[in-house]
Simulated assay, not measured.
Amino acid sequence: MTDDVIELILADHRLFEDLFRDLRDDTNDRAKVLAELSTRLVAHAEAEEAEVYPALRKFKKVDAEEVEHGAEEHAEGHQALLALMEIEDTSSEDWEDHLQKLVEAVNHHLDEEERTILNDARETVPDERRAELGTKFVEAREERIAAGCGDLDYVRELAERTEDRIDE
């Protein structure tokens, strides 16, 4: 298991993609998969914003505007996640439409983050510092998971709290 923050973030990104595939399959227990996605997605975003993004802003070759944009995209993802979680009928067309919006929002963010922030960090941030950030990222992520960050009430509160970050 690596402690490189970049590799840890990328592993989470691949997990999100796997969970999206599971959510698209209507033979799965979509409510259960959505609960796992919600927990993992919120914990990941909050750990990045608490531990990784502030540290990366200090490196001149990591674009601070891209880091701020990443936080805005987290807020958009929280909004899309909440909208999906509030639909009870996982077999409805409305649920499918909101799933698609969530997938698009998150995949857009993953793509941009990987191409900009993470590539810049890979080239700029020393291995030792990436390992330190990886440890902090995992600790923060696990703390958020243990606190139940994926439940509907918390996601609702998070979406409200971060709504002003969204650049419309």
Rank of each mutant, 00 (worst) to 15 (best):
M1V: 04
T2F: 13
T2R: 13
D3T: 12
D4F: 09
V5F: 06
I6M: 07
E7K: 14
I9S: 09
D12C: 04
L15V: 11
F16L: 08
F16E: 06
F16M: 05
D18A: 15
L19V: 07
L19F: 00
F20T: 02
F20K: 02
D25V: 04
D26V: 06
D26R: 12
D26W: 03
D26F: 01
T27S: 11
N28E: 14
D29N: 13
K32N: 05
V33C: 05
V33Y: 02
V33I: 12
E36S: 09
L37C: 04
S38H: 11
S38L: 08
T39E: 15
A43G: 04
A43N: 01
E48A: 01
E49A: 09
E51H: 09
Y53S: 02
Y53Q: 01
P54D: 09
A55E: 09
L56H: 03
R57F: 10
F59C: 07
V62C: 05
A64N: 06
E66Q: 13
V67K: 07
V67P: 00
G70K: 03
E72M: 15
E73W: 12
E76A: 11
G77V: 03
G77H: 01
Q79N: 07
Q79I: 03
Q79H: 12
A80Y: 06
L82P: 08
L82D: 08
A83M: 11
L84G: 03
L84R: 11
I87K: 08
E88N: 11
E88C: 01
D89R: 00
T90L: 04
S91K: 15
E93Q: 11
D94R: 14
E96A: 13
H98R: 15
Q100E: 14
L102I: 06
L102N: 10
V103I: 08
V106S: 12
N107W: 06
H108S: 05
L110F: 02
E114I: 00
R115L: 08
R115G: 10
T116C: 11
D120C: 10
A121Y: 00
E123G: 02
T124Q: 02
T124R: 03
P126T: 13
D127L: 14
R129N: 02
R129I: 15
A131R: 15
E132Y: 11
K136D: 13
F137T: 01
A140I: 06
R141H: 10
R141F: 05
R144K: 13
D151V: 14
L152N: 08
R156Y: 03
R156Q: 09
R156N: 09
E157I: 02
E157K: 15
E160D: 03
R161D: 01
T162K: 15
T162L: 06
D164L: 00
R165V: 03
D167K: 13
E168I: 12
E168R: 15
